[in-house]
Design a protein around this nucleic acid. Sequence first.
DNA 1: TCGTCCGGCTGAAACGTGTCAAGGTTAGCC
DNA 2: GGCTAACCTTGACACGTTTCAGCCGGACGA
Lengths: 344, 344
Amino acid sequence: MPGPAVSIRDVASQAGVSVGTVSNVLNRPDIVAASTRNRVLAAINDLGFVPNDAARQLRRGRGRTLGLVVLDVANPFFTDVAKGVEDATGAAGMAVIFCNSDGDPAKESRYLDLLEEQRVQGVLITPVDDANERLVRLRERGVLVILLDRRSTRPDVCSVAVDDRLGGELAIRHLAEAGHRRIAFVGGPWRLEQVRDRYHGGLHALREAGLTEEHLRRFETPSPTVAAGRDAASRILGLPRSARATAVFCANDLLALGVLQELTRQQVRVPEDIALVGYDDIDFAAAAAVPLSSVRQPRQRLGQTAALLMLDESNNPDGHRHQQVIFEPELVVRESSQFTRTPN
Amino acid sequence: MPGPAVSIRDVASQAGVSVGTVSNVLNRPDIVAASTRNRVLAAINDLGFVPNDAARQLRRGRGRTLGLVVLDVANPFFTDVAKGVEDATGAAGMAVIFCNSDGDPAKESRYLDLLEEQRVQGVLITPVDDANERLVRLRERGVLVILLDRRSTRPDVCSVAVDDRLGGELAIRHLAEAGHRRIAFVGGPWRLEQVRDRYHGGLHALREAGLTEEHLRRFETPSPTVAAGRDAASRILGLPRSARATAVFCANDLLALGVLQELTRQQVRVPEDIALVGYDDIDFAAAAAVPLSSVRQPRQRLGQTAALLMLDESNNPDGHRHQQVIFEPELVVRESSQFTRTPN
DNA sequence: TCGTCCGGCTGAAACGTGTCAAGGTTAGCC
DNA sequence: GGCTAACCTTGACACGTTTCAGCCGGACGA
């Protein structure tokens, strides 16, 4: 049943040429005479020949695939990023091995092993931890590494990120200006740099507004998911009303949607009782029970840019200049934070 | 900078054994003496050797990767399916090449080419079209094919699906029982079997309730997305009120969320003016502006089962029995359809 | 003592492709 | 007609594995 497994050699004999010529037709069609080329192409068609990428890769040293490692497949933010990556790579005829670290360093490590065995051309990754030992090693072995949604600290590594501190600032400034003085920050796990940056950006805005760290209370979550958001909301509502936050800023929209669900369930009105701001502006934010204010990131461009950077570094190793691309986030105000409060 | 590219041969000489032995340590550790094995492992560690999967694949004929082709990465339904696939394959040390056909036959075809070149072990696919010529060819060449979210018509191809006709029945029966007599069906493109099945299931329920085809008006969409849902809603609202549907059943939740957004924007109340039922019960359905009634599918199990079926067929080619697994969907009623209407 | 068996290991032959030096043909030119 | 150059094509080798027939040496039985 498994067909005859036709190889370049069969094509060669069918077309009456040498294997070298067939290979040339495949890789540098211009250097072979038109008549020969057509004969070879016909043979390829007749036999239904499909080149074996493993052999090609073995010979060439590196393959036509690249790895994409994200923190959470279920998060629309990352699927949009992935879409951007796919657009750029698909056009270049490259395959993407999609890996989901789930924020787990062990899983991330396993996937990096796998990608290394695959001899991928490069890895686009949103790392779980900070300065990743593994990534340095990967680079030393000739695997291109590009940081995604994370700013690179090394000048020899490209990165594409969004200014998370600025994003945090925008959100908290918005809330502070609306009169909020007790704000909850929901995010985690804390080892994620994005979470920390958004928090610190918020702090910065707070100080600018003449407030202090005490006005921004942290609620760390074990994961950035809807379920974790619901939990965090319960914890917030567990406080006596007088100490309870009047606004919540979430490190991403999934958390915010979770918070919103739980608040609604417990009959707390948004934004009248508690205002809410999320992060990412995923498509579902606008469709939420209360349309969600959020900090928008250029998700697809993020992925696309990262992929293009990789392709450039790959095709043009010498001319390539490493860059740290930073996009600017943008606050989108919707109903969930539209309520002005008189500071008490 | 690209390190020395250490191969199995280097390991062999460092450990003072032959390459065959190193290979054995890697693949059948039990047949090599413990002392030798340790020596080899130490050498592997010292040199930081990482096996080259391309070479292995070349020799073995097939690799340790499989392809997953879905209709839309941005649809949480498919990311959940992907998560299921990943769970099962990750445990088996396999890599998943994630492909997004976007419902476009040309893109699907390009990806199948790519997967064929990669000599993947198998392909899990939700095909765009019906009886796919390409898939048959793929199978003939020894690539395992498993249909995902689509029932197989061939006895020699495994499939894992959910009973879409039943799902359509559940939804429409629910609406008919609530008194609705003018129902709109929003879905598309029509070439997707899922869409057609859900529609026909709905028709069936309608007839059971003593109604006819005229009570279910079709609104075809160019794609199953939020934006297309908004468009469809405008079209529905374009009709004179007396002819306008009092309930809308959408072929998936993205469409339903789009419909909901547009209805809300045009001040049409859900469910009082128009009731709404979606399909898939993605996590965001419950968090929508009006919590969405929806037909739930076991998304993760779908992916997981498909992957396991593939692994089984792959590891156990003879003992394997082809199966068409069918899961049952389940109606989840939420606010968006909780309104009983007196038939006029 | 010889023969047999067996666990461990070796060495070489594939797998399907890309590359490259070298060969072959043709046309152009003096 | 011979020389050169331009253009195509060839054939062999290399890439890093796996696999397998076969070798070696020691243990065991007769």
